[in-house]
Simulated assay, not measured.
Amino acid sequence: MLKLSELLCLAGVHVTFLNTEHNHRRLLGSTDAGSRFERYPGKLSFEVISDGLREDHPRSAEDFEGIVKSLQGVAEAHLREMLRAERGRKVTCVIAEGMFDYAFEIGKEVGIPVFAFETVSPCYLGGCLCIPKLLDEKEVLDENLVRELKKGCLECGRIVSWAPQEEVLAHPAIGGFWTHSGWNSTLESIVAGKPMICWAQYVDQLVTRRLVSEVWKIGVDMEDRWDRLSVEKMVKELMMGSRRQEFKKSAQKFSKLARESVNNGGSSYTSLDHLINDIRKLSSIKHFENTLS
C-alpha cells in the first residue's frame, strides 16, 4: 500500500495514508521511510490512529482476527469523520484493503467511491470466485521448530526482528528464500529471481505455495512436513539438488516477466495508469460539482 501511495504521488495525486500507531512506529524505526517520504512535500501525509490494543499486545498472526476486529472498533468512526470533515482539499476516493468491508459501507454512506486494494494473490481471488461453482458441483507454527531454528542459527545465520527484505533477496549470496508464501514476499522473491521453500499458514498462502511448487516450478512446498530431516532435505533440494537448475531457470524466467510488467507498456504499468486516470476523472467530476454548488 505504501508503494502504491508513492506511485500515486509521483503521478501528482495527493495521498493521505491512514496507519496505526504501532505500525507507524515500526515503519519509522526500522526503515528510511521518514526521509524517503520527504520527497513528496504536500503530496503525502500520514494520519495515525490506535489499533485499540494494549501496548504489550504481541500483535501476532495467531490473533489476526482479533487484531482486525479491534482495529475496526477505532478505524470505522475515524474514517467516517475523515471523509465527512472539511479539510480544504476534497476527498476524491478511498483505496482500502479489501477485507475492511466497513470502508466500502462508509464510502457509500458519504458518497465517495472506494477502490479495493487486495494484497492476496490474484490466483487466490480467482479461486474464491470459483467457490460457489465448486459447491454446486460438489493448514500453526511449530514452537519446537522455532526453538531449534534459533539454536541452529547461532553459528551460521541470524534471526532479526526486521530486515530490508528486497535488499536481502537481491544480494548475490542469496540462493533461496524460505517464505510463508504471502503474496508480497512471493512477488519480491520472483523479481529477485530467487527460488523458494514455501511454508504456508493460511488464506491465500495455501494457494500461492501450490503455484510456486507445482505450476511455476520455482520452489518446493513444505506442506505439513517441518521436522528436522524434512527441512534439511528441502533446503538441499533447493540449493544443490537435481532440480536446482530447473528452479533457477524458472525463477529467472518469471523475474524477467515481472520486471517487464512494470516497465512502460507492461501490464502492471498500464493498470496503474488506468487507476491514476480514473482518480483524475473522479477529481474533475468533484471539482465540477463543487463549482455548480
Rank of each mutant, 00 (worst) to 15 (best):
W178Q: 01
W178N: 01
R147H: 12
E155D: 15
V168L: 14
P172N: 11
Y124I: 05
N144D: 15
L125I: 13
L135Y: 06
L145Y: 11
C130F: 01
Y124F: 15
P172W: 07
L145E: 08
L141P: 00
C123Q: 13
Q165M: 10
G157Y: 06
E137T: 08
G152V: 02
T119K: 06
E166C: 03
K138M: 12
K151N: 08
K133Q: 13
G152W: 06
L154V: 13
F177L: 03
R147M: 11
L125E: 02
P172E: 15
D142Y: 03
P172R: 09
A170I: 05
E155M: 08
E148T: 05
T119N: 08
V140R: 11
F177I: 06
G126I: 01
E143C: 00
F177N: 03
K138L: 12
L141N: 08
C156H: 10
V146Y: 12
V146T: 11
L141T: 12
V140P: 00
L169K: 08
Q165R: 05
G127S: 14
L154A: 12
F177K: 02
I174K: 06
E148L: 10
L134E: 11
K138R: 15
L154M: 09
K133G: 10
C130D: 15
L154F: 01
L125R: 12
L125Q: 10
